[in-house]
Amino acid sequence: MARPPSIRPVPRPERGFFARRWYGEIDFGTLFWRDTILVATAINIGFAAASLLLLAADTPGAVAFAVYMLPVPYNLFLFACVWRQAENLGPLASLATRCAVLGWLALSILL
C-alpha cells in the first residue's frame, strides 16, 4: 500500500520589529517599559535636543520643528501597540496602562 505524501508545515519567516509589536508577539512589559518608556523617550529627548541646537544655530524654525516632530509616527505606533495589547490585561490594569501610555504620548508630543 502506498504511503500518503508527508505534509510538512511551511516555515513562516521571522516577523520584523514592527510586525512583532503590532501582533503582540513580544512580552507586554518589554513593549511598555523598554520600547515605549525607555527607548522612545530617549529618542524624543534626542530629537528635542537636536531641534534646540538647530534653533541655536539660526536654522529656520520650520526645519527645527520638523526635526522635533520626526519621532511622532514612531510614538503613535508604539501607543497603538500598547493600547491594543492592554485589552489582554485585567480591567483595572488595562485602564491604568492606557491612561499611562496616553499621558506619555501627550508629553512626548507637547514637551
Rank of each mutant, 00 (worst) to 15 (best):
M1T: 12
M1G: 14
M1A: 13
M1K: 06
A2Y: 11
R3H: 04
P4E: 14
I7Y: 05
P9I: 05
P9N: 06
V10T: 11
V10H: 02
R12Y: 00
R12W: 00
P13V: 12
R15K: 09
R15M: 09
G16Y: 03
G16M: 02
F17S: 10
A19C: 04
R21I: 07
W22M: 13
W22V: 09
G24A: 14
G24M: 08
D27L: 00
F28E: 11
G29W: 07
T30C: 09
T30F: 13
F32T: 09
F32N: 04
D35I: 00
T36A: 15
I37A: 12
I37G: 01
V39L: 10
V39S: 06
A40F: 10
A40M: 10
A42N: 10
I45H: 05
G46M: 01
A48C: 02
A49W: 04
A49P: 00
A49Q: 11
A49H: 04
A50D: 04
A50Q: 08
L52P: 00
L52K: 01
L53D: 10
L54S: 12
L55H: 04
L55C: 08
A57N: 12
D58S: 09
D58L: 02
G61H: 00
A62K: 00
V63K: 02
V63W: 10
V63C: 08
A64G: 11
A64Q: 08
A66I: 09
V67D: 13
Y68H: 15
M69A: 15
P71M: 08
P71I: 11
V72H: 03
P73K: 05
Y74K: 06
Y74N: 11
Y74A: 15
L76G: 07
L76Q: 06
F77E: 15
A80M: 10
A80C: 07
A80L: 09
C81L: 06
C81R: 02
V82G: 05
Q85W: 03
Q85K: 03
A86I: 05
A86E: 08
E87Q: 02
G90K: 01
G90T: 11
G90F: 01
P91A: 13
L92Y: 04
A93Y: 03
S94Q: 12
S94L: 01
R98P: 05
R98I: 06
C99D: 08
A100T: 14
L102M: 10
L107E: 13
S108C: 08
S108I: 04
I109L: 12
L111Y: 01
L111V: 10
L111W: 02
